[in-house]
Amino acid sequence: MSFPCIKINLRKISNNARLINDRCALKGISVVAVTKSILADIEIVKILKKSGINIFGDSRLENLVKLRKYFGYGQELVLLRTPMISECEKMLDVCNTSMQTELSTIKTISDICERKNKKHNIILMVEMDDKREGISARRTIPFFDEIFKKYPRIKIKGLATNARCISKRRPRINSIENLIEIKKRISSRYGYAIPVVSGGNSSIWKYIEDNSIPEGINEVRIGEAIFIGNETSGYEKINGTFSDSFILEAEVIERKIKKGFVYKFIIALGIQDVPCKHLIIQNPCYDIIAQSSDHTVIGLKKTYLDGLVKNKMDGLILPEPEVGDRIIFGLDYFGLMFSMTSPFIKKIYIK
């Protein structure tokens, strides 16, 4: 076996995906599985599909190209980030739907659609709580008006909002309700029924679970809750999910001994692979103390180290990593993203 490696437990991922999809379905909510953190890995996507998830979304067109090649043209794929002008032509060949926030981009897409004699679905992102992308709530209806009147080849399929991607502010019910209110005003003024209202991401899970999600939300975009088992409002574990579907293993290449104890060792893993703040060491006696581009230094926790220096370690049995031993880490969401993206970390699938 080669190291470092990420062990991917497909059974645990399936459990998480099925649980989340089933709970959402009970409330009439469709799940868009967000595949960016797994680099649209086909082995994992197969499991998500078998677990009942029918829509896949990603912010990078390259990942969606991979999914389109695997699924063919019967699968609904959504671009979750406003496309670059330079990729609009290719995007139209790959995606059924795209998130949109800029009129100039929508005009470009419309022009390409005219030339290719095709139509395209868009979802308007409305900025509520996150201070990332989106049209302001007060500008959404004028924005809709311009698209509706000028671009007949563009179908406005939905409204969406985001939370907890940049801002630390938790999603608020009234913000989600505002999104539904915008939909109602558009329906009243234009006689146009917007079919999709995408209420957010893993950060609104608690509202789904406690049944306080406003009626009218019929779609959510979920990544971290499936892959890590966390909701992202308070970063609490979701009941019934696994948080260890992905485990990273790295090899010890050097160790230091003091008074007969291994007090420090180095593993062949660095910032170029995964920044250490996204690693969760599973050995309770050690902490990550430093990292460079290609080395991670791990040392005894201060409590044990102080005891070692003061000769108070009698009777304490510590693990003694040898050169060649493996060190095991859990991953947070960004650790998963780095690990799946790094070409130096091998993937091992556990079925």
Rank of each mutant, 00 (worst) to 15 (best):
I267M: 05
S293L: 15
G270D: 09
D287Y: 09
I289Y: 14
I257D: 06
I267T: 08
A268D: 01
S293K: 13
V262A: 10
Q272H: 12
F261V: 05
G260L: 05
F265K: 07
F261W: 04
S292C: 11
T296V: 10
F261P: 00
I267E: 02
K256Y: 15
V262I: 13
Y286A: 10
V274F: 06
K256R: 08
L248I: 08
C285Q: 11
G270S: 15
Q272G: 13
C276N: 03
I298Q: 01
C285H: 09
Y286T: 15
E254Q: 14
P275M: 02
I288K: 08
R255Q: 10
K302L: 06
I266T: 12
D294F: 09
S293Y: 12
K256G: 06
K258P: 10
E249Q: 08
L248E: 04
H295E: 09
H278P: 06
D273M: 00
L248A: 06
A250N: 09
I253F: 04
L269P: 05
R255K: 12
P284R: 10
I280N: 13
Y263A: 01
K256E: 07
D294W: 13
K277Q: 15
A268N: 12
K264E: 07
P275V: 01
H278T: 11
F265P: 04
I289M: 06
K256L: 03
A250Y: 03
V297G: 04
P284S: 13
E251S: 15
V252K: 00
V274H: 07
I288C: 06
L300A: 13
I298E: 01
P275A: 03
K258L: 10
H278R: 10
I266H: 06
D287M: 14
G299V: 01
D294V: 14
S292V: 11
D287F: 15
Q272V: 06
D273I: 00
S292P: 14
F265H: 05
A268G: 03
D273R: 00
A268V: 00
N283D: 09
V274N: 05
C285N: 09
V262K: 01
V274P: 05
P284C: 11
I253S: 08
H278L: 14
A290Q: 14
C276G: 03
Y286L: 08
D294H: 11
K258H: 09
V297K: 02
I253G: 13
K264L: 07
K277G: 12
D287E: 09
V252C: 00
K259P: 04
L269R: 02
L300K: 14
H295P: 09
D273G: 02
A250R: 02
G299F: 01
G270R: 03
K259M: 14
K277R: 12
E251M: 08
I271V: 15
I280P: 13
G299M: 03
L300C: 11
A290M: 14
I281Q: 05
H295K: 15
S293N: 15
K264C: 10
I298A: 01
K302H: 13
D273E: 12
D294L: 07
E249Y: 02
I281R: 05
S292L: 08
K301P: 15
I257V: 13
D273N: 08
K258Y: 08
L279D: 02
I271M: 06
V262Q: 01
T296P: 00
D287S: 07
I280K: 15
I288E: 03
H278N: 14
I253C: 05
I281L: 12
Y286R: 13
V297T: 13
V262M: 02
V262G: 08
E249D: 05
